[in-house]
Amino acid sequence: MCLALPARIVELLTGDQCRVELGGVRKEISLALVDDAAVGDYVIVHVGYALTRLDPEEAAQTLALFAEAGIDPAGVLAGDGLPAPEAAR
């Protein structure tokens, strides 16, 4: 129900409307709940409304944190059947 997805603003329209793109699909949504959104910004879209802007730097930091968690210095869990980081490269 609270499904919401990040989409990129491609065009600002009249009123509080804008057009966003998500995976090749374009849709008109409302920006009435967010201030100062610009073309190129990512917003989190739910039932036709942008709820908030997404912070690209924080997203990058969160991904870096995930990668860091996977480092297993002692190697105690090697052979647990899960894919190793090298295997993906």
Binding site: L5, R8, F66, G70
Partner: peptide
């Protein structure tokens, strides 16, 4: 899709599973 696919990465998931 940006900000979606990166957060479904299987290798990173395995890393997090190891950390847990």
């Amino acid at each position: 899709m940006k900000y979606v696919d990166e957060f479904r990465d299987g290798t990173l998931a395995a890393g997090l599973a190891r950390a847990i």
